[in-house]
């Protein structure tokens, strides 16, 4: 009988200024999330990550990367490209938050309303998404994730090491504090 080989997956694409980053640049702990806007588990983790950033405002920063599992979530790719269209206008996190707070409203009609609520021109963003102007960026995140060992959504890397624990606030606090004190 062979022993299962435990390999710890590691983040292969380092965080750069192209990334969407929330929190202090000099944070001791960087959490990279690979997420899918239509994934209910990502939706469940969203308020916990928010609270983690609030409680550890000086030590933790969050990086968000796109990982749409399009064959299971038909609206995920469009949502990701819309978030990127908001991102190039400096509104990534507003759009990100709207998407996770309205996961049952990701169809094109409601998504346009969301874009409007975030204060951006829906027609302009729609046209970019239709032209797949942001598809390469979303795909780059996805491929980097799959090469790093992302095995579902959400997958978090805490200071570069895949977090195989839970996404409840206590789990996240424990993981972040352990990384900060490592």
């Amino acid at each position: 009988m062979s022993t299962p080989l435990q390999v710890t997956a590691r983040l292969r694409d380092p965080v750069t200024t192209d990334d969407h980053i929330r929190g202090p640049a000099d944070a001791a702990v960087t959490i990279v999330e690979y997420g899918d806007f239509q994934c209910q588990f990502c939706g469940a983790a969203y308020p916990n990550l928010h609270e983690l950033l609030r409680q550890r405002a000086d030590t933790v920063r969050l990086v968000y990367r796109y990982f749409p599992i399009a064959n299971v979530h038909p609206y995920a790719e469009r949502a990701a490209e819309t978030a990127e269209a908001a991102g190039v206008r400096g509104r990534f996190w507003e759009m990100h938050d709207w998407l996770y707070e309205h996961q049952d409203q990701l169809d094109p009609v409601h998504l346009s309303l969301g874009v409007e609520q975030v204060g951006l021109p829906p027609d302009e963003l729609n046209a970019e998404v239709e032209n797949r102007a942001h598809a390469d960026r979303v795909r780059r995140d996805f491929v980097g994730g799959i090469r790093s060992g992302v095995n579902g959504t959400p997958t978090l890397f805490v200071n570069g090491v895949r977090h195989d624990g839970g996404y409840d606030l206590p789990d996240l606090l424990t993981a972040a504090d352990a990384a900060a004190n490592a």
Binding site: N71, F142, N151, G152, T153
Partner: peptide, 14 residues
């Protein structure tokens, strides 16, 4: 789970 292995491989088809 959403992290289903086969669904993941489909999404990585390209």
């Amino acid at each position: 789970v959403c992290g289903d292995q086969m669904a993941l491989y489909q999404s990585a088809a390209p």
